[in-house]
Amino acid sequence: MRMMTRLEEARSLDPLSDKLQAVVFAAVRPQFLRDLLHGTWLGHPLHPVLVQLPVGSFVSAAILDLLPGKRHASTVLIAAGTAAVSPAVAAGLVDWSQMTKDRRRVGLVHAAANTVAVGLYAASLVARLRGRTTRGKAYGFAGLSVAGLGAYLGGHLAYAQSAGVNQAAPEIVRVPEDWTEVCSLADLPDGRPVVRNVAGVAILVYRHGAEVSALIERCGHESGPLGDGDVTGSGADACVTCPWHGSVFRLADGAVVHGPAASDQPSLRVRVDGGKVLVAQP
């Protein structure tokens, strides 16, 4: 853990990280492509889904390499896994480019380890196709070992640094389960969201006509202040754009419209009683 802490604080990686980030931004410009790779349409990041094929293929190949008479099958698996790496890399880089610096430092080493692993698997495939099975197996086992290091770093990103998770989700449990007054209906301007607090939790409250909705104000992607974001559209189709990384959410229900956020913004139950706006946990 001390090693991981030093890696998170390794500012010497920032110049390379910043240059690679600029390359990713320049290479993936269309919003629809960024949304596709972020997994906005899927409801959670796409990268963890895409890594299943190469990882599964490489692990299966390693098992078959320990059994007699499975040379052809393991070669096919190595080829399939190597071919499946590119889309997983693309999704991972797009997610990585929108992370905080400490996460990008770990992510950079994670990517480097996986690049070495893929290189070893490519060498393994070439050796196998040339009939050098023993050498191919050696490269394959070496690739799996390095990929294991990359997987450890990826796990640290997800579970220790909360990369790719909805940062706003923990705020939900801090909101009272019982109906709690957040403001009066008369205090809400029509068509413009306002920030109010309930039990220390910032809530983004939006009114369109007689309908009122409430979202956690802290952006689920990287905790940006949605209350400072621009509003586009009107009525039930109005959306707010996070001022930090540009994620777009529909104010009426928190549905994610554009990434880098890959999941909906958490919303609360709302009712109006006697001119008072009340909210509660979902």
Rank of each mutant, 00 (worst) to 15 (best):
180 T>Q: 02
217 E>W: 00
76 V>R: 12
113 A>L: 13
207 R>P: 01
209 G>C: 03
148 G>N: 11
202 A>W: 00
148 G>V: 08
131 G>T: 05
235 G>F: 02
210 A>S: 15
79 A>G: 07
262 A>H: 10
6 R>T: 13
192 R>W: 09
232 T>L: 13
37 L>D: 09
161 Q>C: 09
4 M>L: 15
6 R>N: 14
34 R>T: 08
154 G>M: 06
27 A>I: 05
273 D>T: 11
26 A>Y: 01
221 H>Y: 05
138 A>Y: 07
170 P>Q: 08
107 G>S: 02
124 S>N: 02
226 L>I: 05
211 E>M: 10
167 Q>E: 13
211 E>C: 00
15 P>G: 08
245 H>F: 00
163 A>Y: 03
176 P>T: 04
36 L>V: 06
19 K>E: 14
11 R>T: 15
51 V>A: 00
120 L>H: 02
153 L>N: 01
190 D>C: 10
79 A>Y: 06
9 E>T: 13
157 L>P: 03
123 A>H: 09
248 V>T: 10
130 R>T: 13
157 L>I: 11
222 E>T: 12
175 V>A: 03
76 V>G: 13
83 A>Y: 08
255 A>E: 15
193 P>F: 10
159 Y>E: 02
193 P>I: 12
281 Q>H: 10
2 R>Y: 12
33 L>S: 11
10 A>H: 11
52 Q>T: 15
22 A>N: 12
28 V>E: 04
158 A>Y: 11
270 V>F: 05
73 A>N: 05
273 D>M: 04
52 Q>G: 13
83 A>W: 12
174 R>W: 01
150 G>C: 12
103 R>V: 10
267 S>A: 14
37 L>R: 06
226 L>M: 07
168 A>H: 01
277 V>T: 02
21 Q>L: 01
104 R>S: 08
81 G>W: 01
11 R>W: 12
266 P>Y: 01
101 K>E: 15
232 T>P: 00
10 A>D: 12
141 F>E: 07
14 D>G: 12
49 V>H: 13
161 Q>P: 06
70 K>S: 14
82 T>L: 15
232 T>M: 11
30 P>M: 06
118 V>E: 12
34 R>V: 08
223 S>M: 11
26 A>G: 15
245 H>C: 00
275 G>D: 01
153 L>F: 00
190 D>H: 09
250 R>W: 06
257 V>F: 01
7 L>G: 09
45 P>F: 04
72 H>K: 15
74 S>F: 03
163 A>R: 07
254 G>K: 03
252 A>S: 11
97 S>M: 06
184 S>G: 15
130 R>G: 15
92 G>W: 07
94 V>L: 09
255 A>L: 14
71 R>V: 15
145 S>R: 05
125 L>K: 07
219 C>K: 06
48 P>M: 03
75 T>D: 12
145 S>H: 00
160 A>F: 09
71 R>D: 15
96 W>D: 04
252 A>R: 03
68 P>D: 02
243 P>I: 04
87 P>R: 07
234 S>Q: 14
111 A>C: 00
143 G>V: 09
99 M>R: 14
190 D>A: 09
140 G>T: 07
150 G>E: 08
106 V>P: 00
